[in-house]
Amino acid sequence: MAEGNGLSYKARRRWALVILLVGMPVYIVAAVTVMNWLDRPPLWLELLIYVALGVVWVLPFKFVFRGVGKEDPDADQK
């Protein structure tokens, strides 16, 4: 188990795929829905909010995405 987070490389890859294919679209719909409920802010503020929301969604999942694009570290051991 790499990096001491309890998830194997293959598990992190699978979770990353689920997060990107399911979680991200749900988050986008939720963010746009909440923004539509608000009174229309100035364009610069709206852009700033969308940029912030675009960065904030990944913070809880940073450990899942770390190292996923690299080769499997466990493959050398087998």
Score class of each variant (00 low, 15 high):
residue 4 G to Y: 08
residue 17 L to V: 11
residue 32 V to A: 01
residue 4 G to F: 13
residue 20 L to V: 11
residue 46 E to Y: 15
residue 27 Y to A: 01
residue 33 T to R: 07
residue 49 I to V: 14
residue 14 R to G: 04
residue 33 T to C: 06
residue 12 R to E: 03
residue 40 R to M: 06
residue 14 R to E: 03
residue 3 E to Y: 15
residue 39 D to Q: 12
residue 33 T to D: 07
residue 50 Y to A: 06
residue 39 D to P: 07
residue 22 V to G: 05
residue 48 L to M: 11
residue 40 R to K: 10
residue 17 L to S: 14
residue 12 R to P: 01
residue 18 V to Q: 05
residue 34 V to S: 01
residue 49 I to R: 10
residue 33 T to V: 06
residue 40 R to H: 12
residue 43 L to Q: 14
residue 42 P to Q: 09
residue 16 A to D: 00
residue 41 P to D: 00
residue 18 V to M: 04
residue 35 M to Y: 02
residue 30 A to S: 10
residue 43 L to R: 10
residue 39 D to M: 15
residue 3 E to D: 13
residue 11 A to N: 02
residue 9 Y to K: 03
residue 32 V to D: 02
residue 3 E to K: 15
residue 52 A to V: 06
residue 7 L to A: 04
residue 3 E to H: 14
residue 17 L to P: 08
residue 52 A to F: 06
residue 44 W to C: 01
residue 3 E to G: 10
residue 31 A to Y: 03
residue 9 Y to M: 02
residue 35 M to Q: 04
residue 26 V to D: 04
residue 16 A to E: 03
residue 40 R to A: 06
residue 16 A to S: 05
residue 34 V to M: 01
residue 36 N to S: 05
residue 8 S to N: 00
residue 3 E to A: 11
residue 9 Y to N: 04
residue 25 P to C: 06
residue 51 V to K: 07
residue 15 W to R: 10
residue 14 R to S: 02
residue 48 L to D: 14
residue 22 V to I: 10
residue 21 L to I: 14
residue 20 L to W: 09
residue 49 I to Y: 10
residue 43 L to G: 09
residue 32 V to K: 08
residue 3 E to R: 15
residue 31 A to I: 07
residue 35 M to N: 04
residue 38 L to A: 12
residue 52 A to S: 13
residue 33 T to W: 12
residue 30 A to C: 08
residue 7 L to I: 02
residue 4 G to A: 08
residue 17 L to A: 11
residue 11 A to V: 09
residue 23 G to H: 07
residue 32 V to H: 03
residue 26 V to G: 04
residue 17 L to I: 11
residue 12 R to I: 08
residue 19 I to L: 12
residue 46 E to N: 13
residue 24 M to N: 10
residue 47 L to V: 04
residue 43 L to E: 11
residue 47 L to N: 14
residue 17 L to Q: 13
residue 18 V to D: 05
residue 35 M to S: 08
residue 5 N to H: 07
residue 6 G to D: 06
residue 31 A to W: 07
residue 51 V to I: 03
residue 38 L to K: 12
residue 19 I to K: 09
residue 22 V to K: 08
residue 25 P to S: 01
residue 51 V to G: 03
residue 11 A to C: 01
residue 41 P to S: 01
residue 28 I to S: 05
residue 29 V to R: 02
residue 15 W to N: 09
residue 40 R to P: 11
residue 41 P to F: 01
residue 29 V to N: 04
residue 27 Y to L: 05
residue 28 I to V: 00
residue 22 V to D: 11
residue 12 R to A: 06
residue 26 V to L: 05
residue 18 V to I: 08
residue 33 T to P: 08
residue 21 L to S: 12
residue 7 L to E: 01
residue 23 G to E: 06
residue 29 V to G: 02
residue 15 W to H: 11
residue 47 L to I: 15
residue 50 Y to H: 12
residue 31 A to D: 08
residue 37 W to Q: 07
residue 28 I to C: 00
residue 21 L to Q: 15
residue 28 I to M: 03
residue 31 A to G: 01
residue 44 W to K: 11
residue 17 L to M: 15
residue 44 W to N: 07
residue 44 W to V: 00
residue 10 K to F: 05
residue 42 P to S: 12
residue 37 W to I: 11
residue 41 P to L: 07
residue 34 V to C: 05
residue 32 V to C: 04
residue 10 K to I: 09
residue 15 W to D: 09
residue 38 L to Y: 09
residue 32 V to T: 00
residue 25 P to R: 06
residue 35 M to C: 01
residue 24 M to G: 03
residue 38 L to F: 15
